Amino acid sequence: MKTVSFTQMKDGTRDDYQLLREFEMEHFEGTAGRLLRELSAQGDETIPGYKISRLEHALQSATRAYDDGAGVDWVVATLLHDIGDGLAPQNHDRFAAEVLRPFVRDEVTWVVEHHGAFQMVYYAHHYDWDPNEREKYRDNPFYQTCVDFCERWDQNSFDPEYDSKPLSFFADMVEGVFSRPAYDDDILCTGQVRGLRP
């Protein structure tokens, strides 16, 4: 395989960076596949104590969103909302949001980025933490959307008896979202509040 001539970036030539750009474009095209592989690997991983794997939680959440008539942005975001659990357990919500940010509307990204704080309403009191952490976002236009996301698709998706759709069901949706042009203003819809509608 052809490689660049430099060992320090500052010494790279135009030809070097054109070569890298070609490889980067191929790499970008494989994003959805890498995400699906990471999700699949989470089928064997979970934090001890849960009744289901991290993959099953993702599938339950996404299935609920799909069955609720959510649009593809919401279904894919729900599938990926906890993808950072293994790699960034202290800030998994922000990790997932950054993966999604270039490809979905900003309301969806904001909800994924903040769902960790919003979920605390269900359990924080058991740790003597503040269950109302989400109240600091009360004035944000996406506040209610995040409340609804957590209630309808996230907090209730830990059921070993739930009939989830398989990961393969969502593969084309993930491919579709991650094949979009990154940071397209028509996709990001900055500041628009639609709630959990498509």
Rank of each mutant, 00 (worst) to 15 (best):
G33I: 03
F170L: 11
C146E: 14
P198V: 10
V72I: 15
D148L: 02
V121L: 09
F103C: 03
D73N: 13
F6Q: 06
M25R: 11
N140R: 06
N132P: 07
D67N: 06
E133R: 09
Q192G: 09
F142R: 00
G195C: 09
L80M: 08
D93G: 02
R152K: 13
D106R: 10
G43T: 10
V75W: 01
H92P: 02
D130S: 02
L19E: 05
G191N: 05
H92Q: 08
G43S: 11
I52M: 10
A97P: 01
I47N: 12
M9C: 01
D44L: 05
L36V: 01
P181F: 02
G176P: 00
F142A: 07
T46F: 09
T63W: 02
H126M: 13
T78R: 04
A70H: 13
S5F: 03
E24W: 15
R64Q: 12
T13L: 12
R64D: 05
A124F: 07
F178S: 12
Q155M: 07
V76P: 11
F28G: 05
L167E: 09
V75H: 02
D73H: 14
F142C: 05
L19M: 08
S53I: 07
A77F: 04
I52G: 10
M120N: 03
S5L: 00
F178P: 14
N140S: 11
A77W: 01
